[in-house]
């Protein structure tokens, strides 16, 4: 009897209760994500998949955006594009390459960039990102 009433047994019982508590929360966590489990997950950067055929064999391309790319308020689109379009290197804020991606929902910004570069659109997606090609020099 003394063995069951010892401090060690009490601690073991508390641990068992905490394990049971954890298993309960795991069950709730999984059940709450049942809907999410059935969703189709696209690879990060999949929104740029239409750009891939045009960038095959291209070493470097530009990436220009009027959105924030600092650490704290970055939506990650640039890095998603870099991930998906590897091994093509995307140079941020540099449009001096034959190919560049423009990421903006601001019409003025887009028109100004197109006028400046005289580029034509090769591909685009519904998120405000387009792959442009500058004319040959």
């Amino acid at each position: 009897m003394k063995k069951f009433l010892s401090l060690h047994s009490l601690l073991s019982l508390i641990c068992l209760l905490l394990v049971a508590n954890n298993i309960k929360y795991l069950f709730v966590f999984i059940m709450s994500r049942q809907k999410v489990l059935n969703e189709v997950y696209y690879e990060p950067g999949y929104q740029f998949h239409t750009f891939l055929p045009h960038l095959k064999g291209v070493e470097k391309a530009g990436y220009i955006t009027d959105l924030s790319v600092n650490r704290e308020s970055n939506d990650g689109a640039y890095l998603q594009a870099q991930y998906y379009l590897a091994p093509t290197i995307l140079e941020l804020e540099d449009i001096n390459y034959p190919y560049f991606i423009i990421d903006s929902k601001n019409t003025d910004f887009i028109i100004r960039t197109i006028k400046e570069t005289k580029a034509r659109r090769l591909a685009n997606n519904e998120y405000g990102q387009a792959l442009m090609k500058r004319p040959a020099p």
Partner: peptide, 15 residues
Amino acid sequence: FSFPFLMGLIMFTTP
């Protein structure tokens, strides 16, 4: 199967 093992199990089952 006692207190030390259960400590590891608590960590292992923490969501």
